[in-house]
Design a protein around this nucleic acid. Sequence first.
RNA 1: UCUAUACGAGUCU
Length: 245
Amino acid sequence: NLTYNSLINGLCQKGKMEDAIIFLEKCKFQGFNPDVYTYGVIIEGFCKKDEIQKGKKLFNELVNKNMEANSFIYNTLIRAYSKNGDITEAVKLFNEMKSKGIQLSSVTYSSLIHGYSNNGYLDDAKRLINEMRDDGLSPDVVCYTALIGGYCKTGQMEKVLTTLEEMSSYDIHPNKITYTVMIDGYCKLGQTEVAVKVLGEMEQKGVVPDVVTYNALADGFSKEGKIEEAFRLFNDMSRRGVDLD
RNA sequence: UCUAUACGAGUCU
């Protein structure tokens, strides 16, 4: 089974979903019974290509076979629906996990927080952070960064600051992505001076900016016509050698 | 306290 699954996984990773399905059928013909892992891999493959309906169809197939989807599969679907703006469906799956007693994790929460956040439901996103604690989980930097991203997108920078304070009270430290989200947020609001200040803070804390951080700033400068600044940034970047990852 | 799915957050396109 492991062999079948890894072959199918290989195809899915490459986005060759048609081939994966054909291969799956052939395997079935040879007496292979797809298991939860098989389904997981294929569902993820479809979700990555934004073909959620096909993923959901397999999910239903799995359920009809009296197998239980694992948290990987739920998380994958919740994330896909969230990304697609279909919060209703994401929440439905989230609740289903709860009622079936499937282990929720910070991945589950962050996926949904991201969904709420990106669709403007910031109160719900915030609520989930608290709910996590009630569930005995600790929101991590990813959860907080997703929330901060929502505040940035809606221009609620005061809330970004209070969120940072909350994080620090729990001893959760903003990372490269958290800072980049904020820098991008300020840039998009036309406040590149503040963005530069955030970059300074970031470096002071020993968090190293990467190419995405610089791109966010560069984009901000160019939209404000700050060519000089953009060049300075560019020099800065090549002088220090930027981490790619 | 090992157990097969690069499960979650950022820029530009």
